[in-house]
């Protein structure tokens, strides 16, 4: 490491990474610094550090806009769809990975290829169907769609993982007289925690960050998600940039904090789940 640092190339490498890191952080820095400025302060100086940091913007955002309510809505959707999808995927992937049945390979192939189908292709019939069933603007309706959209990835990842569990473990459990379900819950799942964490991370990010499904299938003001709320919020306070940025800081805080706290899980999750 120290020998490397002496090479002239190392300086260039550091410079490249520094620039890349700076560019990756610029929007975040701008967002945070601007949120701490007053309107007048921002008008004078759009780039520098706030001279006299103010927190009024945060207060007005929280008082005037239902950010917490939107976050709660998003949280409900994330929890509902991730739990539903994980349960269904665990069962399905377990069968695909360990049991022999007709159509097994086809099911895996079809499910995997669905990963790449863009959601926009599915919205027209689902929307028409939901209109007919009165399921537009219901949590159930949106959770079903989200759960469906994230499931192909879950099945792919879990199947791959379950296949790496040593066969002897299954056989030992089987000899002990354990049924399939017991093997799954008592033997396989405890071993699969890393894969499950990855799933939860990647899928939660997907649902939390989605906009398309949210604005089409949750039109009700009271059910608006954080991302849909942001689009409303940003239009309304367009010329109060510091206030807008305070809103964005609040909106990005949950995922940002989780990322900083659980970087290891996040990075591992992102690196193995990068297909999403």
């Amino acid at each position: 490491m120290s020998a490397q640092a002496l090479q002239p190339g190392a300086v260039v490498k550091q410079a490249v990474l520094l620039i890349a890191s700076f560019l990756a952080l610029v929007p975040t820095l701008y967002m945070v610094l601007t949120a701490l400025k007053s309107d007048a302060g921002y008008a004078v100086d759009k780039l520098g550090f706030p001279r006299a940091p103010v927190i009024d913007n945060f207060r007005s955002v929280l008082v005037d806009s239902p950010f917490l309510h939107w976050m709660l809505n998003s949280a409900v959707l994330v929890a509902g769809s991730v739990i539903l999808s994980t349960a269904i995927s665990v069962l399905g992937a377990y069968a695909i990975a360990t049991m022999a049945f007709r159509g097994r390979n086809t099911l895996l192939a079809v499910s995997t290829s669905l990963m790449a189908v863009p959601p926009v292709v599915m919205i027209v019939p689902l929307f028409v169907l939901y209109t007919r069933l009165g399921m537009v603007s219901t949590y159930t309706g949106a959770i079903l769609i989200y759960a469906g959209l994230i499931t192909p990835f879950s099945v792919y990842l879990l199947t791959t993982f379950f296949r790496t569990v040593p066969r002897e473990l299954y056989e030992a459990a089987h000899i002990d007289g354990a049924g399939q379900f017991t093997i799954l819950t008592k033997v396989v799942l405890p071993l699969s925690m890393p894969a499950l964490v990855t799933l939860v991370v990647v899928n939660s990010l997907y649902v939390w960050n989605d906009l398309l499904i949210a604005i089409i299938f949750l039109q009700d003001d009271a059910k608006r998600t954080l991302m849909a709320g942001i689009s409303v919020f940003s239009g309304r306070y367009n010329n109060q940039v510091p206030l807008t940025m305070a809103g964005m800081v609040i909106a990005s805080a949950p995922m940002f904090i989780l990322y900083v706290l659980f970087q290891k899980q996040f990075i591992r999750g992102l690196m193995s789940g990068a297909i999403k």
């Binding site: 049945f101 499910s111 469906g148």
Partner: peptide
């Protein structure tokens, strides 16, 4: 095995299968 994959097939059928035929 079919019982295990049934919910999966149902969910994928609903969210992907039905719309892709219907479009």
């Amino acid at each position: 095995p079919y019982l295990y994959v049934l919910p999966l097939v149902a969910l994928l059928g609903f969210v992907f299968g039905y719309p892709l035929l219907k479009i």
